[in-house]
């Protein structure tokens, strides 16, 4: 069985090490916070917060306290707040150890596309371009194929790029792949998924 959303998030959580400052994107990456266990991880929210806490209990929502997905959240004992310029200063300055992001497409050379579909979907890049350019390590979490069964792991991205050569590791419902100079390297297969199964579902070069 390929991994479900929660299993992908749990696998992504294994990428995080004790003491790291980490930025989690919207969607499956947000779920990663549920699986960090005892590790001492500080989550950054790029709208101006380090030390992001869980969602509030009903009645305790604060309109002045949201994450980058505009969801109401809470603070922790370690929390600090700052402005957007300072927030992206720490991102651009390489102070954030890792980012876990969703994607529409990833290429074998680590190109990432996740911000627009020309003529169809115009949402914007938000902080994704800054994150992939600045953080220490970029981990992408996404389904291996789209709803038509086409590979989202490609030789070349077809959509406008978020960053060029920026992805280090791809975690999909089928397994874990690393971006290397020669192509993609299969690190791990999901339970019941074979190496052949991943190769068949992947348009990109696997080495």
């Amino acid at each position: 069985m390929p991994w479900d959303r929660n299993q992908m998030a749990a696998r992504a959580a294994e990428e995080l090490e004790d003491g790291m400052y980490v930025n989690l994107g919207i969607g499956i990456p947000t779920l990663v916070a549920n699986y960090v266990g005892d590790k001492d991880i500080t989550l950054q929210s790029e709208n101006g917060m380090l030390g992001m806490g869980p969602f509030p209990f009903e009645g305790e929502e604060d309109p002045d306290l949201i994450n980058a997905g505009k969801q109401t959240i809470t603070e922790l004992a370690r929390t600090s707040y700052f402005d957007s310029a300072t927030s992206f200063g720490m991102i651009r300055g390489g102070k954030i150890a890792a980012a876990v992001l969703g994607a529409m497409e990833v290429s074998e050379s680590g190109d990432l596309a996740n911000w627009m579909i020309p003529g169809k979907l115009v949402k914007g890049m938000g902080g994704a371009m800054d994150l992939v350019a600045g953080v220490g390590r970029v981990v992408v979490v996404m389904d291996h194929t789209n709803k038509h069964g086409d590979s989202k792991v490609l030789k070349e991205c077809t959509l406008p790029l978020t960053g060029k050569g920026v992805v280090d590791r791809i975690i999909t419902n089928l397994g874990v792949l690393d971006v290397t100079h020669k192509g993609l390297h299969i690190v791990e297969c999901a339970d019941g998924v074979t190496r052949d199964g991943i190769v068949k579902a992947t348009e990109a070069t696997i080495v």
């Binding site: 402005d83 957007s84 927030s87 992206f88 994704a128 371009m129 800054d130 350019a133 600045g134």
Partner: peptide
């Protein structure tokens, strides 16, 4: 990009007409 927008504002306010960034 969000950080570029924030820094463009900060730079303008600090009298800096331009800056170089890897973003984008």
């Amino acid at each position: 990009p969000q950080g570029t927008l924030a820094e463009r504002m900060r730079a303008g306010g600090a009298g800096i007409p331009g800056f170089y960034t890897q973003t984008g």
